[in-house]
Structures are given as C-alpha cells and as structure tokens.
C-alpha cells in the first residue's frame, strides 16, 4: 500500500466535487445558529460524531470488503432526508469518476454499473481506498476528515472567517477525529461478520430537517 494515496483521497483538491457543498453549515449560518469560530467548532464536532461516524463506518466497511450494494441500502436507511440522499449520490457519482481514473478496480466498475445514478459517496470512497491498498481505518479517516473540513472550509467563505482559525479548529478536533475513525473501523470489522446492522447509524435531527429546508431555498451559495 501507499500511504500517499490517503493524502490524495483526503485532499480537498481531489476532483470529487466536495467544494460545492457546505455540509449543512450554510443553513446553520442562515438560522444564526453558527456565527463565529466557537459555534462553528461545536457544529463541526456534533456533525463529526453523528453523520461523520456513520459515513466513516460505511467507508470503512466498503474498504473492508462488505458488499457495496448492501452498504448502499444501509446508507439509504441511515439517510431519511431525500435531499441528503440526493447529495450523497451526486457526490458518489463525482467521486466515482475521479476514483476510476486514479485507482481503477473491478469493484468500482461493478458498483458504477449497478448504480449508474451514483452510489452513496462514502461507499465509493471506501472502494477507492481498497483499490489503492489502503486499510478500512484509512478510509474511515478520509471520510471523517472530509465531514469536518467541509463545513469548516465553507464557513470561511460564508462568515469571512480567518482561514487560520478554521485550520486551528480542525487541529483541535484531532482527538475527536481519531475516536470517530477508530470506532468506525471497529464497527466495519464487526460488519464483515454480523452484517450492515453492526455499522453506526448516528444521526442528527436538526441536520435532517435543515438539509431539506436548505434544498427548498431558491438562492443559495452551496448545493447543500
């Protein structure tokens, strides 16, 4: 395996379309629930331990070799908001295009054929990690890091924050990232024996509600 592949997958410049999404922070800022670096950090931390844990679990399970179509059903069951399902599949489609070019594999080809409209993004990420020879824990780290860095980066633009504060915030979340990625990888290991119900399904009611609200806006800077 090449550890450098993990840097490539987790890089915000990897052409997988993530930059167009705010991870719910645009809606939170509009509701004045997030207005400064402290409230941004609380937001990112809460999101990381809920949807972050769930997506990291799915990515790790895909990297561990759990059936990606069963994982896609499991991701649907864990994403009750249709707007967020659509976002996950759109991002999955974009990730698939980038992953097939960079880490081609039969697993990716099979999933692309079975889900032409896009599979849930963390599953594609997990298969790309597997193709690159990375571990389930690596895949979990990439998913968890993206979950926290997405809203932090978007908030820099939306609130005109100092980018140094956003980087500092992500550094403060390092321990949380370690805990989430480790828990996700452990659950993925259980899922290889027990099935997808062993994966985390941590969720947040407010992210589901505001995700649908945001999708109904006529003018918005980010797609989600």
């Amino acid at each position: 395996m090449s550890r450098a592949a993990l840097l490539l997958l987790a890089d915000g410049r990897f052409p997988a379309g993530g930059h167009a999404h705010s991870g719910g922070i645009e809606a939170a800022i509009a509701h004045q629930a997030v207005h400064d670096t402290d409230s941004l950090q609380t937001f990112c931390r809460g999101r990381l331990h809920t949807t972050g844990l769930t997506t990291a679990g799915l990515a790790a399970a895909a990297a561990a070799g759990v059936n990606p179509l069963l994982l896609d059903d499991a991701a649907d069951a864990r994403t009750p908001a249709p707007a967020l399902r659509a976002v996950a599949r759109r991002l999955g489609r974009q990730m698939m295009r980038a992953a097939r070019a960079t880490f081609p594999s039969k697993d990716l080809e099979r999933l692309a054929a079975a889900r032409p409209q896009g599979a849930h993004q963390p599953i594609v990420l997990g298969l790309a990690a597997r193709a690159a020879g990375l571990t389930p824990l690596d895949a979990a780290y990439a998913a968890a890091y993206e979950n926290a860095s997405g809203p932090a980066t978007a908030a820099v633009r939306l609130l005109s924050l100092d980018p140094l504060d956003a980087s500092s915030l992500l550094a403060h979340l390092s321990t949380d990232l370690d805990a989430v990625a480790t828990a996700a990888a452990r659950a993925a290991d259980r899922a290889t024996a027990e099935g997808v119900d062993a994966l985390p399904s941590a969720s947040s009611p407010l992210l589901d509600i505001t995700g649908e609200q945001h999708a109904a806006w006529t003018v918005r800077l980010f797609a989600s």
Partner: peptide
C-alpha cells in the same frame, strides 16, 4: 428483511456537541 430506517441519537452529557447547532441547538 431489508433495512428501511436505521437511526441512533445520543443526547445529554458526555455526548460531544449534542446541544450544539448541528444536533439540537437548545431544543
């Protein structure tokens, strides 16, 4: 036999960020 809905919520200390803007925001 197929999963329709799977959600876990966790509120109250020591859950990280449970009352913050991503989860309950005071509700």
């Amino acid at each position: 036999g197929r999963p329709l809905l799977d959600q876990q919520t966790a509120y109250g200390d020591p859950e990280p960020g449970w009352d913050g803007p991503a989860i309950l925001h005071g509700h």
